[in-house]
């Protein structure tokens, strides 16, 4: 789980990139709180071969990255 709420870009993608490079997880949950980060993390995840599912939770977003 990467909780990137409260962070503006590029920090959420940097945090996800760090986790992906360190542990190469098959699935990864990412929490962000702005649309820009949703777009950027989605693009990064897809570039790394993940499928990305986005669910809105109140004002926040949960992204589920899975291979």
């Amino acid at each position: 789980m990467v909780d990137a709420r409260g962070y503006s870009c590029p920090m959420p993608v940097v945090m996800v990139q760090k986790e992906v490079k360190k542990n190469a997880p098959a699935t990864l949950e990412v929490l962000v709180d702005n649309q820009c980060s949703v777009e950027n993390v989605t693009r990064y995840g897809m570039g790394q071969g993940y499928q990305v599912k986005v669910t809105q939770e109140g004002q926040d977003f949960r992204l589920t990255l899975s291979k």
């Binding site: 590029p10 993608v13 940097v14 990139q17 950027n40 570039g47």
Partner: peptide, 19 residues
């Protein structure tokens, strides 16, 4: 568009994201 002059070069180097 999230237009940003620094973001273009930064993201290209950091994530190979050229958007």
């Amino acid at each position: 568009a999230r237009l940003c002059m620094v973001g273009g070069i930064r993201d290209a180097v950091l994530f190979q994201d050229f958007r």
